[in-house]
Amino acid sequence: MNIVSILTLVVSSTLIFSAPLILTAIGGTFSERSGIVNVGLEGIMVIGAFSAVVFNLSFADKFGDATPWIALIVGGIAGIFFSLIHAVATITLRADHIISGTVLNLLAPSLAVFLVKVIYQKGQTDNIKQAFGYSDIPLLDRIPFLGQIFFSKTSIVAYIVIFISFVAWIIIFKTKFGLRLRSVGENPQAADTLGINVYLMRYSGVLISGLMGGLGGALFAQSISINFSISTIAGQGFMAMAAMIFGKWNPIGAMLSALFFGFAQSLSAVGSQISFIKNVPVVYLQVAPYVITIIVLVAFLGKYNGPKANGTNYIKSK
């Protein structure tokens, strides 16, 4: 393979592997910025993936090419409903955030496979017919050299997702909603004294994480796994959480981290086709995101460790 085609392959597979992580990591950022730790991202992705695949299989004939896009939204909505469990448990019922998040992770795969069996009478779905594929981005792909690497045979969705991370950054740091969201994650008492509805903001944060995690799962299922089974989502949610932390709870940081993790994943997936990394044990690439996250956390020592009130329940006193 020549250098350009290697780069094209690496770039496009990096984008494809990263996009679901980016969406989910942004979701986690919203939740944790509001002060609710969300270790349940994995479970939310499972539900998003499941719903999208079921929708895709059921309606592909009806919606044709548009199916994956609509299924994406279906996955997002399913994610919202599923994350409501976490929101009610942690915000209203004062449950421990870790326990509640773990419940999501325990519940999602079992529930999804259970429903798959109820619907299809077998343990995994058929492959979907309408998936997100590779395509060229018009005009940009004509740029010499770079155009071929970045914009031909690539994932349009991934570029949209990268754009979404900038939008999320604007929402979190440049709008009233974002300011209030962050305030309840940093110091809910202070926010409360200023008349900000702590519970409302926290519900918003968690439900947005449901939406984004659901989208992430739906995207993964329709661009990478192409069907749904118990092992469709195996650690992507936790990797997204790692990207969120590595990105310092900043959507753009999360996006860049997710791109990096996606790069590591894509190398481990396509590495065998590339001569000079063929001999690197795949395990290094597989564990890189997790090892790096731990190292970064340790190196943060004394610096930014996430929103200050993250993981705490707020009980309004009277």
Binding site: S100, L106, S110, K117
Partner: peptide
């Protein structure tokens, strides 16, 4: 009945343990 129901039940049980305030 799909056997995954038992894991669903386990998850629901833990939900209530976690949300003991309820």
């Amino acid at each position: 009945i799909p056997p995954e129901i038992v894991n669903v039940i386990i998850a629901i049980i833990i939900f209530f343990v976690g949300a003991k305030y309820l």
